[in-house]
Simulated assay, not measured.
Amino acid sequence: MTEPLVTVDVHTHIGQHGVHVHDPLASDEVAAWGKVSWDVDLDEHAQAATAAGHSIVLAFDAEPVGVVVDNEYVAETVAGHDNLIGFASVNPTRKDARDRLVYAVENLKLRGLKLGPTYQHFHAHDARALALLEVANEYRLPIIWHQGTTFTPAAIAEYARPLDLDLVARRFPDLPMVIAHCGHPWAEEAASVIRRHPNMYMDVSALDTRPWQFAQSLASAFEYRVFDKLLFGSDFPFSTVQQCIDGLRNGARICRELGIAPITDRDIDALCARDSLTLLGLK
């Protein structure tokens, strides 16, 4: 059996075009990249997941942009696979949001929560969001936030800033939270937030196609002394574990050659080996 390349991949997606992924996001993908990338064959996901010791699989309740990868589908996908960990997603604006999350935890055995305010059309300070986070806090569910920009005009950009999570972290200091994609393009802002809160992290997913932004994100984490709070994530199917590793090494090389941060291959190896499950309370 091939040894995994990384210990934990904290950011992978499933969902099929026409079933879980619809317009406007699907057509916006075509406009941005020439094809619908969010169309995942489960066998391909399972094969990709062998590159990591464990992979987190994310539901996504983002009906305002045409995406609903439902909690039941994720629960069915991860069932019987010790290397897969399912995260629920519930839009806090739903009237039955609390009941949906409780059901996802108690009945579907999902172990975390995925939120994306820019896609789900809520502000992180919204009373409905804070009420849902109370439930997450009761169950100690780690949260992965898409708190950053996105390509689709159907998203609401003013809900995307990483700084919005500072209040949330102060309200729920014991709740592990991850800012996905280093909060791109606001990596410095995201780094400044996570350094203030012991249980906040960033993942490095889906930045390998932007070498300069990736290098800047790594340099920001180094300068803010939170490099040890970077978690590995691939954002499959938009990238793979190997592509992300290659992007990390290239970003570190750029940092060294430009003299902006002395990030070594050993630092990248440590990031890839990081035991994110323990950090997020999932062991």
Rank of each mutant, 00 (worst) to 15 (best):
D164F: 15
A191R: 11
I156S: 08
H121Y: 02
Y139Q: 03
F151D: 11
D126E: 09
W186Y: 15
A154E: 05
L175K: 07
L115D: 07
I179K: 09
E138R: 14
Y139I: 01
L165Q: 05
D166M: 05
D166K: 06
E158C: 10
D126M: 04
L163N: 08
E138C: 04
T150R: 08
A187M: 10
A154W: 01
A157H: 08
P185F: 09
P153H: 11
A160R: 09
L165R: 11
I143P: 06
A127W: 10
C182V: 02
T149N: 15
W145K: 04
G148R: 07
A169P: 02
G183K: 03
R171V: 04
G148A: 11
W186H: 14
H146V: 01
L130D: 10
E134D: 14
R195L: 03
D126H: 15
A136M: 05
P153R: 14
L115I: 12
H184A: 14
A190Y: 03
R128M: 03
D126V: 01
M177R: 10
C182L: 08
H121W: 06
A187H: 13
P185Q: 10
L130R: 14
I144K: 04
H184Y: 13
R128H: 09
L132D: 04
Y139E: 00
A190S: 09
A124T: 09
C182M: 14
H184S: 14
E189N: 13
L141F: 06
A155H: 08
W186P: 08
S192Q: 13
D126K: 12
D164W: 13
A180F: 00
P176I: 01
L175A: 01
H123W: 06
A129G: 08
G148N: 08
P162K: 07
V135D: 06
